[in-house]
Each structure stands twice: as structure tokens, then as C-alpha cells.
Design a protein around this nucleic acid. Structure first.
Lengths: 166, 166
DNA sequence: GCAGTATTACTCGGATAGTCACTGTCCGAGTCGCTCCGG
DNA sequence: CCGGAGCGACTCGGACAGTGACTATCCGAGTAATACTGC
């Protein structure tokens, strides 16, 4: 069980975009530089976030990304599902039907109880993720981080952000 | 996020071994045939279960595997960790330190709050897994499965199991 | 000076190679049961 | 007939290829700002 590294960058980028003023956007290249990751690859994950309706992309010069809805309505679960896909981590192959002791598919009307237990645990995982919003993360970041870091980040964002006219 | 398929086979095999009489063992080849999976590959996971002290292997002819401790003391979490490894699914790369706004490592004395939130969710996942034991799974299997399946499985196990002398 | 237009440069989006972990397999080391031999 | 040694076969354990997903990258479609031209 391993989450792809893209989840981390996606969360950081979403939190960063959430720190922009209302209506402003930020280009993928700037987000990549700010986080020190590859710009080309970051686009892949940003695309996934756009497809999941978490971000909105603005094309053309002065384009970039902004949140699709308020930061307190975007949870960690939303970001994780957008990047990793909605499928559960445990995917029952129904191997109980394979062996010589299986009379046939009709003998298994109920879902595999192992599968049920695993999915139940995963629901607990997702429930925990859905309790933290991007807004929570940013509030905590501002409250607990080194003031120098906050100041530098604020300066960077002020310099790179692009206010939209409309 | 995807659990390896080996987790499913490992859980099924552990539950199967738990159904053996006290002290009896079952060969990997029989476990593989019973579940309809590759015997060569199953050994890989059984080895992991042995290394994690969930199963005990008995070498030589009439050898096989048996539980290392009672079935009600083996949880799904034990099996998952044995196969997948103890590392958490989310591994923070500390990318917040990469960008041009990071003064230096000394500016981040506290762990990344994103990492904390992700690990907290994973703890909830593991806590849920640890609430289900192999004994629970087998009790539920006996209570809810088609009687034909239970009977066939019981016959198979009676024929293939190997009672140990000592 | 101003409006309209063509250009230009910049942005995101999708299609394309490279790398690592998981899947699947094989052969070798070790051990117990069986057979043969001797008493 | 009984005990013991040797042999054989079966078991698990670790090392070796194949495949799919994630990582990383590039080039093309689209758009807004810009420069230019004509009025």
C-alpha cells in the first residue's frame, strides 16, 4: 500500500492556490517553482484536480489555476480521490470462487466478508480524511509555521499571482 | 493507492490455516490449489507471514504451515502489515523545504501538518483493521456461507491437513 | 489620437518514453519418512 | 523380529525474469495581450 507521490504535491498546490486572493490565479510554472518540483509533471496532477472540479484552469497569457469552490469545502479526501482515483485500495478478486471447493458463482450470493471488513476500514480512512479541509490546513500553517517562511511565501504569492479582471 | 493483490491471498490463507485442528499443518501447494492461485507465488507471501510471526513453517515431508498464535489474536492489520510492510501509505517528501521560499531546514522544526493529517487518517484505517480478527472472519464465514461450500471446504481440509505428532 | 486587426507569446491539454515495485517463476538447501541391511 | 544407517523424496527458502503503474517529459491547441496599420 503506497500512495503516489503526486498526492503530496497535489495537496500542497491546492493549499497554495487556496491562499490566493479571491479571483486571482497562479500559473503551473510558478506553483512548480514554489514547491521545487517538475513543472511538466505537475500539470498532470493539476489536470486531475481540474477534472475533479476542485480547481478551475484559466487559459492564455495571465492564465493559471484557482479554486473551484471555497477552501473550507474542499477536503483532503477530495484531493486524494482526484489524484488516486475513486477505486478502493482493496479490490477483492473473489478468489474464494476459484478453488476446487467452489460449487459455482451461485453459491456466493453475499459479498466476501473479508472484502467487507477491508472496505469498512477504508471507509474509516476516508471519513478521517474528509474531516480536514484545505482551509484547516492553511489556518494551521499560518499559526504554527516560522514567521520567515510565512512572509517569504506571502511575498512570492503577491509577486506571482495574477488578478483576473472579470 | 492500491493494496497489492497478495494481501487478499494472504488473508484467505491465514483464515484457512486458522481452520485447521490444533497442531495440524497444511502445505503451500494445497493452500494454493484450494484458492486457485499460483503455488510458487503463494510461497512469497507465506514467507512474509512467517517472518512477521503470524505463521510457523514446518519443513520436510508432511511439512506445511500453521498459526503461530491463536486466531483471535491475529488481526487483519497484522496480515496487511506483514505483506505490505510497516511503512505508512503516505510518505511526506517535505517538498515544502524545496522551494525558493524555504530559508533552511531549521525553519521547519515541526512535522508537516499535511503529513500529520494524512497519518492520522491512516491510524484510523489501521485501528479499524485491528478490530477484526481472523477468528471473527471464520465465524462469520461459517455462519453466513452456503452449507455446500462449508462442507466441501471441510472435506478438503480434512483430506489435505497433516496432523503433527509432537 | 483611436479603432480594428493580425501577430505574438504565453498558457494549459494530451500523447509519448523511462523507471520502479509488484507479479510470477524457477532452482537450491534442509528435513522427515521409508527402505534396506545387519544383528 | 528389531534397531540403525543410508537413501530418497518432499518441503520451504531465496534468487531470477516479466509486466503494469507511476514518474517524468515533450509538443500541439487555444487564448489574451500586444504591436501595427489605417482612418
Amino acid at each position: 500500500m503506497k500512495l503516489s507521490d503526486g498526492v503530496e504535491t497535489a495537496i500542497h498546490c491546492t493549499a497554495a492556490v487556496a491562499g490566493l486572493p479571491q479571483g486571482a490565479v497562479m500559473a503551473a510554472a510558478d506553483l512548480a517553482e514554489f514547491h521545487g518540483v517538475s513543472a511538466s509533471y505537475l500539470l498532470k496532477h493539476l489536470k486531475a484536480l481540474v477534472k475533479a472540479d476542485l480547481l478551475v484552469s484559466v487559459p492564455g497569457p495571465t492564465g493559471g489555476y484557482r479554486l473551484a469552490r471555497p477552501a473550507n469545502e474542499i477536503t483532503l479526501l477530495d484531493v486524494v480521490l482526484a489524484v488516486e482515483g475513486p477505486e478502493p485500495a482493496f479490490r477483492c478478486k473473489e478468489i474464494r470462487r476459484n478453488g476446487p471447493c467452489a460449487p459455482g458463482p451461485s453459491a456466493f450470493p453475499r459479498p466476501c466478508n473479508i472484502n467487507r471488513a477491508m472496505l469498512k476500514a477504508e471507509q474509516a480512512y476516508r471519513a478521517a480524511l474528509s474531516q480536514t479541509t484545505i482551509a484547516d490546513l492553511n489556518s494551521e500553517f499560518l499559526a504554527t509555521s516560522d514567521p520567515r517562511v510565512v512572509e517569504r511565501a506571502d511575498n512570492y504569492f503577491t509577486a506571482q499571482m495574477r488578478p483576473q479582471k472579470t
